[in-house]
Simulated scan of single mutants.
Amino acid sequence: MNAETAFRQRLAPAVYDRIQTRLRGRLDDEGISAIITDDPEDVSYLTGFFHHSGERPVAVYLDADRTVLLVPALERQHAEEQSARAEIVDFAEYPGLENPFLPLARATPEAPRSVGITTRMTLHRLALLQAALPDTAFAPTDAVTRARFVKLPEEIALHREAARITDLMLETGVALVREAVAAGGELPSEAELAAHVGRDGVGRMYREHADVVVISFLAGGLVYAAANSALPHGLPSSYRLRPGDTFMLSLGAAVGGRFVEGERTFVLGDPTPEQRRYHDAVRDAQAAGGRAIAAGVRCADSNRVCLDVIRDAGLGGYLRHRQGHGIGLGMHEPPWLEDGDPTVLEEGMIVSNEPGIYIPGHAGYRISDSMLVTADGAEPLTAYPRSLDDCVIPL
């Protein structure tokens, strides 16, 4: 694929201008005059600078007029090459001979007395910030988090491409198992299957995309079978698939730093009545959950509608988690489709719809799609078939 036809992962500078304007519109509502965040996802959201988070602080200061990006000196060139949409200031090193936040203080001599900080900032970082800006009062705010809830059209395009890659990885994983069955040899292990789909997703991205945004996770996911899949976030092991197994491909991709997840549960060979009952209950719950996700619906209410299907099927004792969660620059981020979250869904949000049941000693069953909330309901971005008949691999 040539440069003219390659999918471009990086957002244009004007998109970041709109994002920053959106956040500035929230300052008055929060009763603050500026925000400082050192959350790596917030930094990339506000400026387009993606980096490896470590002990050296990287932070964004945003007020009504300015956006300032603080980086360690060794990251300055990296930020410039990514065309970070901010004024860049740097500090020499960490822990350094001076407080790493002092260059930010010097760059913002008129810093307001009331500044919001990300709720994820550590006490250590906050102490350094207070020492650098002793006349400023800091209060936690989730303003950036809430600004991230509703995606811009350019972000949605990145999510759609991540969904396409996720669907292709699911197809690639199934194809590997089918080929092994046809060859009559040993079946792949969880770890081999996970490595295979990850290579496919990452390789496809580098072949078909320009300006790949590198983050800690680009494509791949969790693969587990039989009793291992009864652990909701179990890790791939050396366990080798066997005839009759239930197994799960829990995959996802991040394009331009924007995530999508797609999960399907498969059966290797003719399903037993028990396997069909479990799979159908989760499929019915996921379908009900998809219909419940809509603008104006509370997250808690969507969660209840979804999980009540499993409870009504007599399988509530196997529930281990909520219906889903927000998805964006984080694979898991607010809002939460859970009983305790009253957040009202809005058009442009993306949330996962992933009910599951987990039967100790047998297997887990989970089906997940990333859902875009639309004006008249919700659209699954991932499209791999969901019914058991479509998720059986004949022997």
Rank of each mutant, 00 (worst) to 15 (best):
A285T: 01
Y239W: 09
F149K: 14
P271N: 03
P355I: 01
E274K: 07
V344F: 12
P100G: 11
A163H: 02
P236D: 05
D245M: 00
I359N: 02
E154Q: 09
D28Q: 15
L126R: 14
F266L: 12
E263W: 09
R283F: 15
G326V: 04
E190K: 05
D135W: 08
A162T: 04
C306P: 12
A295W: 04
G203A: 04
Y239L: 08
R178V: 02
Q286V: 02
P100Y: 08
P40L: 11
G173E: 01
E87L: 05
P232K: 09
A105S: 03
N2F: 10
E93T: 15
V177D: 04
N228S: 12
G48E: 00
A3N: 11
G221N: 11
G289N: 06
R10W: 01
L74H: 15
E261C: 15
G324E: 12
T108W: 05
A254P: 09
R276G: 08
A313Q: 02
E155W: 03
D135E: 14
H233M: 13
P109N: 10
Q286F: 03
L231K: 14
T21S: 11
T246M: 15
W336L: 13
F49E: 01
R258N: 14
T172M: 12
A139K: 08
P243Y: 04
L222R: 12
R199W: 06
V115K: 01
A175G: 14
S189K: 00
E347R: 14
R148W: 05
D376P: 08
D211S: 13
V68G: 00
G348S: 04
N303I: 09
F259Q: 05
L129D: 00
G234R: 01
C306K: 09
P243Q: 05
H51R: 09
A12R: 13
E154F: 02
V351C: 03
L315T: 10
S44H: 06
A157L: 12
G262H: 00
A313W: 00
S44E: 06
E347A: 15
T265E: 06
V144H: 08
L372G: 01
R85L: 03
R106K: 14
D17M: 14
I367E: 09
E80L: 13
V213Q: 02
